[in-house]
């Protein structure tokens, strides 16, 4: 994550670090807040927690009309990402999906976080996490399932 604006949040966008309210347990991602959005504690005491890279879709919508720089249809979802130590509440995370057919989505579906270019700031790429179904689910769906040892090309 580069650039002043985005570097401040690079722990969240590069490592899925979130912030847990020590009063009520609500987990904020990616915002690092001073006030707890749920219990209203102000100033709230937040502790850093590490989110897992695998979560569950809570709700989603497939967008069809977007500016040209976005591929459409573009699914977006709210995903619950649990804490990696299995403790506490999951973070409720809003994110784009990548390489995902909207027909393959449903509430409760397992998705994984994929580190991708979110947009550019000038020429500089800004990376963060999108979501996609686990790659292992699509093994053999289109390819022939064979590894290539000793393959001969045509050139």
């Amino acid at each position: 994550m580069s650039g002043i604006r985005y570097s401040r949040d690079r722990r969240q966008h590069d490592r899925l670090v979130a912030f847990e309210c020590q009063d009520c347990g609500w987990v904020s991602y990616p915002e690092q807040r001073r006030t707890c959005k749920r219990c209203g504690a102000a100033p709230a005491e937040f502790e850093e927690v590490q989110l897992a890279e695998r979560g569950e879709v809570q709700t989603y919508v497939v967008q069809s009309r977007l500016p040209e720089e976005f591929e459409t249809p573009q699914p977006v979802a709210v995903v619950d990402l649990p804490q990696v130590d299995g403790e506490g509440e999951p973070a409720r995370v809003y994110g784009l999906l990548t390489e995902t057919d909207g027909d393959d989505l449903e509430v409760g579906r397992e998705v994984v976080a994929r580190y991708r270019e979110l947009f550019t700031a000038g020429d500089r790429p800004v990376h963060s996490f999108k979501f996609a179904p686990p790659r292992a689910e699509s093994i053999g769906t289109d390819g022939d399932g064979a590894g290539d040892r000793g393959g001969e090309g045509e050139r």
Binding site: P67, E69, E99, F119, T120, R135, A136, S138, I139, G140, T141, D142, G143, D144, G145, A146, G147, D148
Partner: peptide, 25 residues
């Protein structure tokens, strides 16, 4: 090998478009 077997085929137009850097308005 598993990744080789996990493929989605794109059209010629998509193959060209995916290689262009998008300009984010």
């Amino acid at each position: 090998a598993e990744q080789l077997a996990s493929a989605e085929y794109v059209t010629y137009a998509e193959h060209l478009r995916y290689r262009e850097r998008p300009e984010y308005e």
